[in-house]
Design a protein around this nucleic acid. Structure first.
Lengths: 328, 328
DNA sequence: CGATCACATGTTTACGTGAACATACAGAAG
DNA sequence: CTTCTGTATGTTCACGTAAACATGTGATCG
């Protein structure tokens, strides 16, 4: 910076002003400084800048890995939204979903230079125990609204209700459910809503099968379901598990949707091209991400620690994997 | 830090020594300092630290988004490998794959605090023109070995050869190919190798259909292929496109694999659960990521700018989407 | 025509840390 | 007892920037 100042014949402060696009610099001076910058290949030093200003224009993001497509989509969308807002994203993937791991990641990120932290797909960690160090703004993507931190999520309950109703309306007596892991908020809410919808409709509520979001776990659940007589409709808590269920059904000689209807949740880009194309609930990851980032920036800029929960409305996408039940 | 020093009754330098685990601190002093740190909730300031030391223990990562599963897996693996090495990952997703966008991302990251940059799925940007600012270590994941920067990738050529040979060995007269985008190195190498393998075998080389890695583009290609008589084997350049091809074939009334064999590339976790389970080439993303990070750290620590290329061997996974051609 | 003002620019300083150097002190060697 | 050596600790300083304050200059207004 000093070199640039010398070359341009101004003080370093003026260089700083130009670098930060302040208004009170004469046009001619600005040009001189800019050309000096270019000539010397000057780039502002973020560390020094952050040391003075106290902020980094960077967000931390903690997730449980990118192998679940829902997560990957969320992370992707958050990254892009953050970028649009002028923030960089510092990512940490947690292996095990323990509270200790979350704290470690947290430590790491706050030591690293971040202005706030986004927690994606928060598992149900013992809520009161998850005392994150104060002072760092946090936004949860998926999680419990009862947390101290703002939270943004798809309206899981509404989505689950949409699919369940759809299947009941097709004439199925009841709907079986392959749930996500028990310690996931999203999974739990989908399950609860499925349950409530069945009850409201006066349908019997079959036992829940649990998976871990993976196609493999869906396959296992599907095999169990295929052995059971009278299963005509299955709602899997995400598209990957739905895929596994469909595979198991196919192997068992059940046709979809003639013999069994299968529906998922997420609407991956691929879901429209499965055989058969999958009926599912579309989550609007981009809107969720947008909200997350804007809540985050509110917090960062105002230091207000107010809690808030925003739910984004999902949409039912009916394709060919669901149909009326076979005549008895 | 000053507060900690005061509380522990030592100088700030001693606190610094404790924070950095230096050896020459008496055990008793160290304990006093540590407890003072805990009491005051002291955390070292990364900005100040970086300002002095000149490094951040952070890597930048530029990718073209997480919607391609191959990319998502790579990013995930790189993040984890970096973490293991004690580095954080600062991610930027590029929208358009232009050289300008790469440069912008680059600027952003170098301004942000990173010690090196990983470029994932580098498109074929005009090589000599892609003059990245010097001084920042760069490793390319996928890319051209002729670049000035070290590069790590799956041995694409070998993988493509494996599938193509597999299909020929099953008795198919030739193999059609749905390629990835023309400006992707990986796609180009898979295509070239498919071409070469056909020629060596004395098979005719049908025209290439181009997709963009998405299932939708695979579906389009599949529809075109289904209209063409005599297509008995298709090699899609990734699993997502293979999925689309299979869908199009199913819609056209072609059975897989009885009428048409379809193979992919990547081996997503889901590919084993498609209907039918997909024959594909498994990329070892974790090994690739490990190499990338270690090459990166070599560069960061030695400042050596030597170029290198590492290829990781892929593996053919035969499932049920490929079989002998139908009798004529 | 002097006071006031707006605006461009310069000077000084603090941000929190670790490197380099300085100091103090204990024990060993002669 | 003196000198030397090694170890624990303290002092000073620089890292590159932006904030706060100071200065200078020309225009505006009563």
């Amino acid at each position: 910076m000093a070199d640039v100042a010398a070359l341009a014949g101004v003080s370093s402060q003026t260089v700083s002003r130009v670098a930060n696009n302040r208004s009170n610099v004469e046009e001619e001076t600005r040009r001189r400084v800019l050309s000096a910058m270019r000539m010397l290949g000057y780039r502002p030093n973020t560390a020094a800048r952050a040391l003075v200003t106290g902020h980094f224009r960077a967000l931390g993001l903690i997730s449980f890995g990118l192998s679940s497509f829902g997560n990957a989509r969320t992370v992707d969308a958050v990254t892009r939204a953050a970028q649009r807002a002028g923030y960089t994203v510092n990512m940490i993937a947690i292996e095990s979903q323990t509270e200790r791991a979350v704290h470690e990641a947290f430590d790491r990120l706050t030591m690293q230079a971040v202005d706030g932290i986004v927690l994606v797909e928060a598992q149900i960690l013992d809520t009161p125990a998850l005392r994150l160090p104060a002072g760092v703004p946090v936004v949860m993507a998926d999680g419990d609204a009862s947390h101290r931190h703002p939270m943004v999520d798809t309206d899981q309950a509404r989505g689950a209700r949409l699919v369940t109703r759809h299947l009941l309306d097709l004439g199925h007596e009841t709907v079986w459910h392959v749930a996500g892991p028990e310690d996931s908020y999203a999974a739990r809410r989908r399950t609860e809503s499925w349950h409530a919808t069945l009850k409201e409709a006066g349908a019997s509520v079959p036992g829940v099968l649990f998976g871990d979001w993976s196609a493999a776990s869906g396959y296992e659940a599907g095999r169990a379901l295929a052995r059971r007589p009278g299963v005509t409709a299955v709602f899997a808590a995400n598209d990957q598990m739905a895929l596994g269920v469909m595979r198991a059904m196919a192997e068992a000689g059940c046709r979809i949707p003639q013999d069994v209807s299968v529906a998922g949740f997420d609407d991956l880009d691929e879901s429209a091209y499965l055989t058969p194309p999958l009926t599912t609930v579309r989550q609007n990851f981009d809107v969720v991400a947008e909200r997350i980032v804007s809540l985050m920036i509110d917090q960062i800029e105002s230091r207000g620690e107010r809690s808030a929960a925003a739910y984004v409305v999902p949409e039912l996408i009916v394709r060919q994997s669901t149909a009326a039940p076979p005549p008895r």
